[in-house]
Computed example of a mutant assay.
Amino acid sequence: MARDLATAPPGRFAGPDEAVDVAIVVVTYQSADDLDRLIASLRHEAGHQRLRVIVADNASSDATLHVARGHSDLVVAETGGNLGYAGGINAAMASIGEADAILVLNPDLVVEPGAVAALRARLRESRAGIVVPKILDADGETYPSIRREPTLLRALGDAAFGSRFASRPGAFAEVVSDGGAYENAHPLDWATGAALLIDAGAARTIGPWDERFFLYSEETDFFRRARDLGYAVWFEPTAVVRHTQGGSGASVDLERLMAVNRIRYARKHHGRVAAAAYRGAVVLHELARAWMPAHRATLRTVASERTWADLPRASRPTRAGSGT
């Protein structure tokens, strides 16, 4: 079967009015250098299943839209502004159409042969609401994408040890570093949002992604809401994607936003006292690393809520258009 999947001829994607097995959502922002590779890998997946690909572009100023429109069978939606990852996903949902499942992918991914079919098979067999694949980094190594639910103890453990002593007890670490966890299918709390297959019915019940997070913690929130509604989340190791880890870029402002969004997440899902304690743990994390300029800047941000208004956030469009 694996050989058949790997050698299936490249296929065309379904149009907006056709029923499909999977509607694939790709949120782009300055993604011109990555998008063609992702689309090429998805065409091989379309050789044996019905796929629709929706590109939601967050006002890229590079050639992203030119690249996307070079593929006549993509559905291209311009959001009209930089709405962030959650906002881009929500904008794409208007073009999902009739689909059994929704696959959310970062644009800087390459999907290995058979990955989409493996995700769908796990979704059916486990009756899960969400299934995530194994992620390989640019060097072909397994990226530790599986996460445990954020807690105060885990935040304190990460503040004290960071990436050191990665094999410490799970009560004190959010990232799952045990290599065995990436070799077998199993349920989990959440995973990084670069790639996830969502049952279409579950997606409707869970509702829109929370755009208040812009970038970072939006997937933590989405997985949490799914679990709270009774949907299981599964990891499927035979579904493999490669990720260059460059889609969101890197800057001090994004580091600041990541730290603040962890506090926002705690405030949304926990009481005032617990959220205040969690914020203290985030402060300790940055204080322990304050000899580095980026962490000093982040420390100032998490310590002073007045600075949060300066963080990256959605730029709302004056008007939004869409086309195919």
Results as ranks from 00 to 15, higher is better:
Phe222Val: 13
Leu35Phe: 02
Ile39Leu: 15
Glu141Asp: 13
Arg204Asp: 14
Val53Glu: 08
Arg212Cys: 04
Val233Arg: 00
Ala281Ile: 13
Asp139Tyr: 02
Phe165Gly: 05
Ala46Gly: 09
Gly230Cys: 05
Ala320Ser: 15
Glu174Trp: 01
Pro9Tyr: 06
Ala297Pro: 09
Leu74Ile: 10
Ala92Glu: 06
Ser177His: 13
Glu174Gly: 13
Ala226His: 03
Gly97Leu: 00
Ala281Asp: 13
Phe222Pro: 08
Leu83Tyr: 12
Leu83Trp: 05
Pro317Phe: 01
Ala202Asp: 11
Ser315Lys: 04
Arg168Met: 06
Leu105Val: 14
Met93Gln: 11
Arg306Trp: 10
Gly129Trp: 01
Gly87Asp: 10
Pro187Glu: 11
Asp189His: 15
Leu284Ala: 15
Pro187Arg: 06
Gly80Ser: 12
Pro107Lys: 00
Phe222His: 13
Leu123Val: 09
His269Arg: 11
Ala40Tyr: 03
Asp228Val: 08
Leu109Asp: 06
Pro10Arg: 08
Gly88Arg: 07
Gly321Gln: 06
Ala200Asp: 13
Pro150Arg: 01
Arg120His: 03
Phe161Gln: 11
Gly80Pro: 14
Asp21Arg: 04
Val131Thr: 12
His243Phe: 01
Leu229Gly: 03
Met292Pro: 00
Arg69Val: 08
Leu229Val: 05
Arg313Glu: 04
Leu123Phe: 03
Leu299Lys: 09
Thr7Tyr: 04
Gly170Ile: 07
Tyr278Gly: 12
Ile130Lys: 01
Lys134Tyr: 00
Ala200Leu: 11
Arg12Tyr: 00
Asp17Gln: 06
Val20Arg: 00
